[in-house]
Design a protein around this nucleic acid. Sequence first.
RNA 1: GCAGAGGUGGCGGAGCGGUCAAACGCAUCGGACUGUAAAUCCGACUCCUUCGGGAUACACUGGUUCAAAUCCAGUCCUCUGCA
Length: 342
Amino acid sequence: MDLDILKEKFFFMPDATRGAVRYLTTKQLEETGTEAIVTNTLHLLIHPGPDVIHQLGGIKKMMNWNGIVFTDSGGFQLFSLLHSKKWRGKVHENGATFKSPKQGNTYELTPEISIDTQMRIGSDVLVTLDDCRDTNLSRKEAEKSVERTLLWAIRCKEHFNREYGGTKKTGKLLTCVVQGANFPDLRSYCAKELVKIGFDGYNFGGYVVDRDGELVVDEMSAVIESVPRDTIRYAMGVGKPEDILMAAKIGFNLFDTVLVTRNARHGTVYTSEGVLRIKNSGMSLDKRPIDNSCNCECCKNYNRAYLHHMLKNGEATALTLLTIHNLTYYQTLIKGLTPIRP
RNA sequence: GCAGAGGUGGCGGAGCGGUCAAACGCAUCGGACUGUAAAUCCGACUCCUUCGGGAUACACUGGUUCAAAUCCAGUCCUCUGCA
């Protein structure tokens, strides 16, 4: 598999957190023009677990997916689930210890375990475990998060090389995450230190929008200015269509966000004329397709009124069709971007 | 016909003298969602408002009381037993 295209082209990766893009079959996923997906290390570590995935031949075989698979390291989940106290556990110098809320068993996620898990999942592109924190972080806390992220990145890389023989032997790529909260100089410092260690890609981590929902352009620019151009530059969690356009302009080439699929499920769809809310009463007799200029299965066969009716009445088919549409919209948007690199 | 139970906002259903424009569901109408605990969550939902309030409201009509969705009487309806 030629993974180097990930350093050249623009990609939008839908999130298949637990090894499935919600409400889509793999065939439907392919038909949206999707070439790469992101799965999640922490979710898959707990269910079904790395050993089961390994015994089943890896996530690609399980999904019957021939495209590219990214594995997110689990750093973001440690932040969003543990810091917010939704799960019980804590982050420490060595990684994190936490309990799964369902069975209550204790899990460890260290940089090494994250890499091992990603390997067992059968990922193409791995991500180093990072210490993701809140956006409005004090300078001191942000510095700590950067130091820890750097330390973990080194451990991940060493483990990947020592245990598996690195990219040379596995053919897999290893990317890292740049932290530094709201401080562009810290972002820049973190990126430069990571470049010294050397990775195939530099991912923008943390929160990508501020409290007003505005893309953190300065921080993103600081990172791009500090990393080589012939690498993966993945803006994690970006974003709204306009945010992707902006991030691409800044220099990022890889994107993912849950907005595409979640908004579809919640009835917010993207069109060439702006956002449309399918649940709104105005849709009840609207015989037009969601987007006239879209060729997806949803737009070719069904009108807004029918989708409105299904969504209002809990028919899961609507969730599938709207997800197909939104994802197709994103993939079309991405394919329309022109490479800015010389 | 006799006996019993009851009539509350679009619907179901709390409340049983003041803190009730009325809990809680559902429906309806908006909005949010950015490395997914999310087919979720938040708000509005009698009318008017210069957002401080104001005016009508708990089948209907009277009455008791400083005060009634809540107590009393009558009227009209509904349901359940027995004939």
